[in-house]
Amino acid sequence: MTQNTNTHFDLHITGFGFLNRIRKVQPSKGKPYWSVTVAALRGDESQKTYIDCSVVGTEAKALFDTHLSAIGENDVVTASFKLSDLYTDTFVYKKGPKQGQPGFSLKARLLQIRYLKVNGHVVFQAASQQNAPQQNAA
């Protein structure tokens, strides 16, 4: 009898939303990496849930290098995405009206981009998405 034991469980989130604060992080030690804040749309009224993400998927990294490295502050980027390993990160506000108060942010790893639109122009669409019905793209 073979017994399967899981040492790692995956939590994957698929969705559609806006990509904000696209930036290449240059740590003092280690390799540079892409980071982005995903404004995931949810609900009937397109409410937004903000998730800070490190881009870890190989194809996603290549898309960031190719299409998103020159994104400006006023550019509108929407994407269909797959995230993993969602968790909360707590912190204390250091300045502003909430100074000294606790806060939290959602964090995850961006694994995959399935559809990417920049300023109303589709710049990438995964092969499996080409025949799928279109989502309402903002």
Rank of each mutant, 00 (worst) to 15 (best):
T2D: 10
T2A: 13
Q3H: 12
Q3P: 01
N4I: 15
T5A: 04
T7S: 10
H8E: 14
F9C: 07
D10R: 14
D10I: 11
L11Y: 14
L11N: 13
G15Q: 09
F16Q: 05
F16S: 02
F18G: 03
L19D: 03
N20P: 00
I22C: 04
I22M: 05
R23C: 03
K29Q: 15
K31T: 11
Y33F: 15
W34L: 01
S35I: 07
V36S: 06
V38A: 04
V38E: 03
L41I: 07
L41N: 01
R42P: 00
R42S: 06
R42D: 09
R42H: 12
G43K: 07
D44G: 12
S46H: 11
T49W: 00
D52I: 03
S54E: 14
V55G: 03
V55A: 05
V56S: 06
G57R: 01
A62E: 14
A62R: 10
A62K: 14
L63S: 04
D65H: 04
D65Y: 01
T66S: 10
L68G: 05
A70D: 15
A70Y: 11
I71T: 15
I71Y: 01
G72T: 11
E73Q: 14
E73Y: 10
D75G: 03
D75R: 05
V76C: 10
T78I: 09
A79R: 01
F81P: 06
K82W: 03
D85G: 13
D85E: 15
L86D: 06
L86E: 12
F91L: 03
F91T: 08
V92E: 13
K95S: 15
G96C: 06
G96R: 04
G96Y: 06
P97A: 06
K98S: 08
Q99N: 08
G100V: 09
P102N: 02
G103W: 02
F104H: 11
F104P: 00
S105P: 00
L106T: 07
K107Q: 12
A108W: 08
R109P: 03
L110T: 04
Q112D: 12
Q112Y: 08
Q112I: 02
R114M: 11
Y115C: 00
Y115N: 01
L116H: 05
L116E: 02
V118E: 02
N119L: 05
N119V: 09
N119E: 05
G120H: 06
G120V: 07
H121G: 02
H121K: 15
V122Y: 07
V123G: 00
F124Q: 01
F124W: 06
Q125A: 04
Q125V: 09
Q125T: 13
A126M: 05
A126E: 10
A126H: 12
S128P: 00
S128W: 10
P133K: 13
P133Y: 05
P133A: 07
P133V: 08
Q135T: 13
N136I: 13
A137W: 15
A138E: 13
